[in-house]
Amino acid sequence: MSVNPLYMQEIEELEQQPAEARERFRVTDLASANWCMRKLAALKAQERDTNNLADAEIERIESWRRHELDKLRGSMEYLEMLLTEYHKQVLAQDTRAKTISTPYGKLKARRLPPKVEYDEEMLLAWAKGAGRTDFVRVREELAKDAIRDAVLRGGEAVPGVTVIDQGVKFSVEVTE
C-alpha cells in the first residue's frame, strides 16, 4: 500500500520547507489552518502505511516463531514426561528423594496444599441460616454517582468532595 500521490506532494513540500520558515509560520486564518490539516492528513496516511507494513512483517515473523516454538515444545514436553515418570519411580522407592540434581538442572517434587472450592450461593445461605457471621463479610462503599449528581447538578456542598474545573481539551481530528 502506498501513500496517495497528492499526500506525497504535501509531505515533500513540508520537508523542503526551511527550518527558519517552520519557526516563523503561524496559523492565522482558515486557509493556513487548512494547509496544516492537509500536511497532517498526509503524514497520518504515511504513518498508517508504515504501521501496516511493519505489522505485516511482524505477523510473518511471529507466525514463523510460533511454528518453530511448537516444534520445540513437543520435544520438550516429551522429555519432561520421561523425567517425571523417572522421578515418580525414584520417589516411590525413596520418599526423601523430593529433589534429584543433575549438572543440567533439578527434578523437584512438592506436595500441593488441598484446594477448596466454594458454591457461593449455597454457602452464603447456609452461613446466614446457621448464624455464622464470621463466614460473611459486608463491605461499605460510597455511592459516587449519587454524590456527583448532588454536587454538580444539585449544587450541594458535601464535605470531603472537591470539584476541579479541568478547563477545555483541544484535539485535532484528521479526516482520512
Score class of each variant (00 low, 15 high):
L82E: 10
S75I: 08
L91Y: 01
I61Y: 08
A127L: 11
E59S: 13
L83G: 01
I61G: 01
K98V: 02
K128L: 14
W126T: 09
I61K: 01
I61D: 03
T99C: 06
G131D: 08
R132K: 15
M122N: 05
D134V: 02
D94Q: 07
F135R: 09
L107S: 01
L83Y: 08
E57H: 10
M76K: 06
G105N: 07
A109V: 01
G131C: 06
V90G: 03
L123E: 12
L72Q: 14
P103V: 09
K88F: 06
L83D: 03
T84P: 00
K106H: 06
Y104M: 14
K98R: 06
R110E: 01
P114V: 07
Q93K: 15
E121I: 07
E121F: 06
V90K: 14
L91P: 00
L123D: 12
E57D: 08
V90D: 03
T99M: 12
V138P: 01
T99P: 02
L91F: 11
A125V: 05
H87C: 00
Q89P: 00
D119S: 09
A130P: 01
W126P: 00
R65L: 13
G131M: 07
A92M: 09
M122Q: 13
P113M: 10
K106A: 11
K71E: 13
R139L: 13
V116T: 13
A92V: 05
V138S: 11
A56V: 04
H87G: 00
P103T: 09
L91D: 02
E120G: 07
E68M: 10
I58P: 01
